[in-house]
Design a protein around this nucleic acid. Structure first.
Lengths: 110, 110
DNA sequence: AAGCAATTGACAATAATTGTCAAGTGTACG
DNA sequence: CGTACACTTGACAATTATTGTCAATTGCTT
């Protein structure tokens, strides 16, 4: 038996996850956006990655769409991190330092 | 022969690095802040970690104080990352995902 | 072509960041 | 003492980024 693992498989963005699940449930943008108290335009943009959701919206979306909240949050946060270091040649090194800081319980800057 | 490595040694913040070097050079806040075209108040706050510097200020500070620009930037960026995930229980997991995304050349969100 | 969901872009509202200024602390020194 | 100087603090102003609305448009599908 052979297992093929594709390490280069693209991980889905929060937007893709949300759209996929919404469509699987047969829900329309307005069904969800009304619960978030935002216009459909924003949700559309969030799903297509043109806008970032807020932390609160992600949490509510997980509830509404019955998505695993932890997983969704992790991806959401990682996107925020990537956004922060985009175009930075030293991004990866900064990530490593950040990890170390968390591991050794550094106090975070206010 | 025994080597003692202190893994728990706190890494210096950008503010500390800047203040230490400025003092070692015997320079006053106003000498530096004028070159950055900001008030001494801000530089004071940056050095004490009460305010974040801008990316541009960090770069200029490295030049003015003859600090290694790469190292300073890495620490600066890591602080921005930590700020982004502060209080998040899933912060470390998000960091790992972000790393993986960079490694496998994910496109960053606009 | 009419109806409906989704998309787009201009722009308004809001919130976060970055800055100034003036008053306040602390300290060194005549 | 008291004054000179570096730095700190906090209120608030200016600027920039984020988050939102709305109306027009696209692209089905019937």
């Amino acid at each position: 038996m052979t297992i093929i693992v594709n390490c280069f498989e693209k991980l889905k963005s929060t937007g893709e996850i949300i759209r996929n699940k919404r469509e699987k449930k047969g829900l329309l943008l307005r069904h969800i956006s009304s619960q978030l108290k935002i216009d459909t335009a924003i949700l559309s943009k969030i799903e297509r990655g043109e806008r970032k959701a807020t932390r609160d919206q992600i949490s509510k979306l997980a509830d509404i769409l019955e998505l695993d909240k932890e997983s969704l949050l992790i991806i959401y946060l990682s996107e925020k991190i990537l956004y922060e270091i985009q175009d930075e040649a030293l991004g990866m090194k900064a990530l490593k330092v950040a990890e170390k800081a968390i591991k050794y319980g550094e106090k975070k800057i206010k």
